[in-house]
Write a protein that binds this DNA or RNA. Sequence first.
RNA 1: GGUCUCGUAGCUCAGCUGGAUAGAGCAGCAGCCUUCUAAGCUGCGGGUCGCAGGUUCGAGUCCUGCCGGGAUCACCA
Length: 599
Amino acid sequence: MSKGHYYLSLQKKMIFSTLQHEISAILNDLYSAEIESNAIKLEKTKDDFEGDLTLVVFPFLRISKKKPEQTAVEIGAALKDRLDSVDTYNIIKGFLNISFKESFWLQSIADEKIDSNYGYLKSDTTEKPIVLEYSSPNTNKPLHLGHVRNNLLGLSLAKVLDAAGKNVKTVNLINDRGIHICKTMLAWQKWGGGETPETAGVKGDHLIGKYYVLFDQKNKEEAAGGEENDTVLMKEAREMLIKWEENDAEVRALWQKLNDWVLAGFDDTYKRMGVEFNQLYFESQTYLSGKDIVLEGLKNGVLVQDEDQSIWIDLTNEKLDRKILLRSDGTSVYMTQDIGTAAKRMQDFNAYEMIYVVGNEQNYHFDVLKKTLIKLGFEWAENIKHFSYGMVELPEGKMKSREGTVVDADELMDEMKNSAAAIAKELGKADNLSNEEADRLYEMIGQAALKYFILKVDPKKNMMFNPEESIDFNGNTGPFIQYTHARINSLVQKAEDLGITASNWNTEIGLHDLEKDLLVLLLDLPQEIQKAADTLSPAIIANYSYDIAKAFNSMYQELSIVKEEDSAKQQNRLMLCKATQQTLTNSMALLGIELPERM
RNA sequence: GGUCUCGUAGCUCAGCUGGAUAGAGCAGCAGCCUUCUAAGCUGCGGGUCGCAGGUUCGAGUCCUGCCGGGAUCACCA
């Protein structure tokens, strides 16, 4: 299913399928062998060799019964004979490198409409949606670097899937209840002195985070090295939780007030990152769900009950373990809740597929969840996908809230912005900008730096976040791509000022190698989006964008537009610049990154 | 201990699902701004792809074993 041709854009598809078809016919002609045309593999020719596409002939030696070189010569000659678009070919060992005519490439890009929709498929909203859950924070502390990776991945995945023509719905399940909230409530009540985000002058989530830490400190003091669960404070917190569950008016009011502060704080952070959801779920409303399903499963004999009345699923035959679903006292656990919310969400959206963006430390949990749901008879659970991403590590090791090594999301974004401002001032980039324009620009650059730094890494892998490297805006970074865009913008502007305009490609003239490299790359956007959607990897888009920026800058360095004397060439070059600008805009938008006109 | 996962240049990462001489960025060194933005471009140095076997025309990529790092295996969430 994931054959090479599967990912291709219309243009590339035509090139590939035509070639495959012709090669298949040639093999039949020359060696009377029947080979399915889509079984013929073509790949991009490596940079070190001349050519556009390469056919590896080794697999055909069995049917040609000839040496690799000779087989390649025969196929190459026949191909040139049959296809007008083929310019030349060369053979190195068993590799047949095929070059197309420049006019063919120019015609290919002329046939693509490179506008703000280039590369994007229209989403079919009548299709059953893919429901994408991400973020899913606890309301007892502000968002940190780990959440940032989650949020950025979720944000980008939603855009990538949408661009690939999927109907995507995003949801956020907010963990707003439980013992951790009661701890902060208690701490605020005891030592807060009525402090609010307004009086304290801090965001609500940060204020609450302070009390969560304070509770921990006070509790440690009380325990004095002993059992931290046996303190009076912990007892009070547990009592508060019980009151909460009993709907005690006073406790509920306090809980509501503090949660609202936190959620308002999250909203600011989300807005700044560009994170949005189609629907929010709150655990305070869903935490009881799942129980009915479990009891039903027990009745059906899918689940087992121990002597102490606790209910379990036995997955030892699935290479997993036994897992508890209802405690002996009849209360539910995390898994129970997840079973319930999955079923609810399935109903709410009539989902085709449900994707959970959750860190890889929960691989086992989702394995169990999925298999349990399937055993319980929910066929749709086959379409549950745990998008498991790696942890973010710091140079000094893992983030530990107790050791104060947690990187706060808001502070991080501020630092990125400040770095952008400092560098811009040093380089004199902002001299002609108003204060507001400059401020917007620094924010845009800071965001790009952070987002790109995190999204360019394969999501499955653990990644290292080095603060010093993250504020380096040279090389393979978001600001580098933004800079490329700003350069093009300025260039196009300049050309227009000089009366140089272009709205069509001249397909019958020559192309410089540097122009052709860029042009061919631009034609890849649709297939890169498909690939990113299929593999759920924004990193593919990031690396592709970088390749474009690099190819452009190389060309920019060598070839001038305003000085070009051949006006047909000049127009093509201008067209190429505009196409590059648009392609970069479209690809970076999938990462939630905006590109400035100037910088 | 069981299961999963990762190991590519000094550092951070790519490597198109098995193809050619393994590539970028950062860091280091050397060049390029009176000419479209030098947050740029060009070049140099830097590798036993953790180790050992296997599969085949061909392995960084697939299989097995070992070494090393990480995660997970709660009547926590």
